[in-house]
Amino acid sequence: MNMYLFVCVLVMAICTYLPRMLPLTFFRKEITSPFIQSLLFYVPYAVLSALTFPSILYATNNIYSAIVGCIVAIYFAYKDKGLVFVAIVAMLSSYVVSLL
């Protein structure tokens, strides 16, 4: 493997690890501010929502299959069917639509 690519990967790995590692390793105090606590409570849902929309529409290279997959996923997610089941039906339904 050439040197440039190897160093690039190391730079990438370090710049991915540092933001993950620093707070968890060195921040040992308990956060008492109700605002920060609330903020941290909502962050997971906010991140996932921002990751999903509108990117889900472009996830399959076919906007119609993506829309159908998205609706099917929301329906089964609403029915509390679990992560794996929802992911699989979303894939299957968008696959079927892409064949039409």
Binding site: L48, C70, A73, A87, I88, A90, S98
Partner: peptide, 22 residues
């Protein structure tokens, strides 16, 4: 066609977390 359809799996998982909580 299968590779493309697989692209939606991760988002399906995200929805399976945020929709029931919402």
């Amino acid at each position: 066609s299968i590779q493309n359809a697989m692209g939606i799996a991760l988002y399906g998982m995200f929805l399976a977390i945020i929709v029931p909580a919402s």
